[in-house]
Each structure stands twice: as structure tokens, then as C-alpha cells.
Design a protein around this nucleic acid. Sequence first.
DNA 1: CCAATAAATGCACGTCCATTGCACTCTTAT
DNA 2: ATAAGAGTGCAATGGACGTGCATTTATTGG
Lengths: 138, 138
Amino acid sequence: MTEIEKTLENNGIRPTAMRILIYKFMAKKEVAIALTDIENAFVKAERTTLYRTLKTFEDKGIVHHIDDGTGISKYALCEQGCNCELDQDLHLHFHCSNCDKTVCLTDHKIPHINLPSGYIAEDANLVITGICEKCSGQ
Amino acid sequence: MTEIEKTLENNGIRPTAMRILIYKFMAKKEVAIALTDIENAFVKAERTTLYRTLKTFEDKGIVHHIDDGTGISKYALCEQGCNCELDQDLHLHFHCSNCDKTVCLTDHKIPHINLPSGYIAEDANLVITGICEKCSGQ
DNA sequence: CCAATAAATGCACGTCCATTGCACTCTTAT
DNA sequence: ATAAGAGTGCAATGGACGTGCATTTATTGG
Ligand SMILES: [Mn+2]
Ligand SMILES: [Mn+2]
Ligand SMILES: [Zn+2]
Ligand SMILES: [Zn+2]
């Protein structure tokens, strides 16, 4: 049994061929991926299967869902020890307006915000839009 | 000529009956509004007209568009002296998971974030989700 | 190993909201 | 008054997400 299979099983996910492939695909990407990205990478696979695979990964807590404001859901594998299910790994995300890629800035946590009294925060989403390091050429 | 008509004209918007009505509607609301909200308030009006009115208001800089993560676009009248067109009025938004309302917290600016080198920030969106003061009853 | 059962996949369809094309109407300028 | 321009109404499109159900594949336990 490979490392990936172990990871999946440890999280209550049966390691089917498709799931292993998708996991590998996500693991080697350094950016957040959209359903379409996977669809293009696995043309033989059915969109629904890919969709539900991402859903399963998310439900079981090995990927987190990213809303980068583009209207297209992105996903990224969670880091070791990520507590995003508990809304406790609130790192920010960067979306490049040039190449349209979105990245997790996992060590840039969302700063704590003092809300007006009466407001109770449960979750937070911070997306910075701009030019990524690759596109800025710096 | 009323105050509202002046405001519209000053921003290059011809003050039609519909536009004045929508402006008034937004002005008396303390929360961000969705197209559907206007639609429900003006049942006789066409959805497209309302849609394009919001678009015009946004283009001319008297309304800002809010992405609260619900997938439904919200809009709010800009404050006096708002520079949101220049991405320089980056206040945060609060979305209540109970009553589904979204509010501008105009005096809670998004804190400055130090990005990794090479990344150039152009815009930022911070949405806090939780329970609003009305729903929390505090 | 085989049957019974459960899980995963494939296909088709539906939904929701945003957006556009085009014709018609109203306003403004000459 | 006429022409040009801006606004509006109606119909249709499109993209992305989501679901119901039949079929296939994997697991279990005899
Ligand atoms: Mn995570
Ligand atoms: Mn504004
Ligand atoms: Zn880029
Ligand atoms: Zn509320």
C-alpha cells in the first residue's frame, strides 16, 4: 500500500484508482485547482465523478475549498495538521489577475479583526488579487 | 431638482424615474442588497433594467459591488468620498449565516498584508461570516 | 468461490444567477 | 419636427454547480 493509499484510508476514503490519480494530480500542483482543471487532465473521466471526488476529499478534510472571487470553486490539498474543517486554518489566498491562478499563502494567516459589539465571527475569507510572482517577473 | 437627481447627474448618470427609485431604495437600506431584493420591491420593473441600473451605478462609482461568498452579488451605495473604484476603500464585509444579510463595515478597513516577494497586491476582499448583532441579540 | 450488499461511477437532466442581443420607446439636441 | 442617442422590455443564452437514478465495481460473509 502506497503513501497516498494510506492517507486516503486514514481519512475514511476508499482508495479507488480515480481518487488516487486525482490526489496525485493535486499533490504535484503548486496552485489551487478547479474542477475544470481536473476535467482537462483526465478527459476520459466523467465530470460528476471528479466533482464528487473533490466533494469527498473536502468532506473528509483532506482538501479545502477556496472561494477566490472568480465564481469558480478551487481546491487545494490541506497541509499536515490543517484544521480548516474547524475554521481554524484561515490562511489567505492570492489570485493573479494576469494568469488567473490562485495560490494558498498558508503561512499568511488572516489577522484577527475586532468586530462591532454583537457581531460573532465564525469564519473568514481573505483574497488578495493582483500579480503573482511568476507574472510580475520579480 | 432633488438631491438624488443632483447626485446622479454629478456622476454622469441621467436621472430617470427608475434610477431615482432604485437609488432611494438603496439609500434607505442599511444592508447590502441583491438584484433579487430590488426585483421584489419593484415587481412592475423588468429584471434587466434593474440589473443594468446597478451596473451603471457601479460603473459610475456611486455603488460598490460586494462579493460576500454566497454566490449572489450584493451592492451598496458608496459613502461620501469613497474611492472604491481605485481599490482604495477596502472595508470589510460581514455576512450573517443566520439571516443571510450582508453589511458593509465601512470603518473596518482591511489590514495591510505583507505578501511574499514578487507578489503585487491590487485589490483585496475580506468577508467575515458569523452571526450579526440583530441575530445574536446582544 | 459465490451470492448478497454496499460503494463508486456514468449519464442525463435540472437549477440558479449572471449576462447579452435586439427591438422598441422615450429623451435630448439640432 | 426630425434625427440621434440613451434607456427599457423581452427573450434567449451561458456557465457552473448540483441531483436522481441506473449501472458497474468493490467488499463482505457464508
Ligand atoms: Mn485545509
Ligand atoms: Mn464604494
Ligand atoms: Zn500570475
Ligand atoms: Zn443576522
